[in-house]
Computed example of a mutant assay.
Amino acid sequence: MEGVVVGIVALVMIGVFHPIVIKCEYYFSHRIWPLFLAAGIGFLLAALFTEGMLSMILGLAGVSCLWSIRELQEQAQRVEKGWFPKNPNRKEPMDCTK
């Protein structure tokens, strides 16, 4: 029974994190990745100090946050390709290399 529950929770997390990544990239750009890193580490640490189903769910949340770092970068590439809209109100940082 626990395997079925963990599978369902994993599916729900994938469904929840996908729009979160899209919205975060739209409003904050891919540079928000440290927030996902901190959340991922936090969830994984919490999973170490809990047991049973809660530990599994916290571990899934932690890994989902860490995977979202890569997805943020890929989402930025999809925006550059024109597959997703770019936020016209977001100010990009100055490029000091020019």
Rank of each mutant, 00 (worst) to 15 (best):
F28Y: 06
A46D: 03
G82A: 09
R90V: 03
S55H: 04
G52N: 08
T50E: 11
T50C: 08
Y26E: 03
L37K: 12
R70G: 14
L72A: 05
I57K: 05
H30Y: 13
H30M: 15
A47Q: 05
S55N: 05
A76T: 08
L72F: 05
N89D: 11
G62H: 02
G62S: 06
W83T: 10
G40T: 03
P34C: 11
R78K: 15
A39L: 14
S64T: 14
W33K: 11
N89G: 10
N87V: 01
P85F: 04
E80Y: 11
Y27N: 14
L35S: 11
F28D: 00
R31F: 06
R90S: 01
E51W: 08
R90P: 02
M53P: 02
L45G: 06
Y27S: 14
S29I: 09
F49Y: 11
Y26R: 08
G52S: 08
L48C: 08
G42T: 03
G62C: 07
S55G: 08
N89V: 08
P85R: 14
Y26S: 06
L48H: 08
A46V: 01
Q73C: 11
A76M: 13
S55Q: 06
I32Q: 03
T50K: 15
I69V: 13
Y27F: 15
L54H: 04
L37Q: 07
C65W: 10
L37N: 07
L44E: 02
N89K: 15
A38S: 07
G59F: 02
F36G: 04
S55F: 01
A47L: 02
G40M: 05
A76K: 14
H30L: 14
R31N: 08
V79S: 06
A38F: 04
P85V: 07
A76N: 07
L72C: 00
V63P: 00
P85T: 12
G42D: 00
W83V: 13
S29M: 12
L44P: 00
L54W: 02
Q77H: 12
E80T: 10
A47W: 02
R31G: 05
S68D: 00
R90E: 00
Q73M: 15
Y26L: 06
L72Y: 08
L60G: 01
L58N: 02
S68Y: 00
A38Q: 03
L72Q: 03
Y26I: 02
M53D: 01
H30C: 13
F36M: 10
V79G: 04
Y27A: 15
F36K: 11
Q77M: 13
L66D: 04
I41K: 11
N89P: 01
S29N: 10
A61Q: 04
I41H: 06
A46S: 11
L48D: 01
I32E: 03
F84A: 14
P34I: 09
E80G: 10
N87Y: 00
Q77V: 12
L60A: 06
R70I: 13
A76C: 09
W33F: 09
G82P: 07
L60W: 00
H30Q: 15
S55M: 07
L54C: 02
S68H: 03
F28E: 00
S55L: 09
R70L: 15
T50V: 06
F49P: 04
F49T: 12
L66S: 03
L66V: 02
R70W: 15
N89H: 12
M53K: 07
K86R: 15
K81C: 01
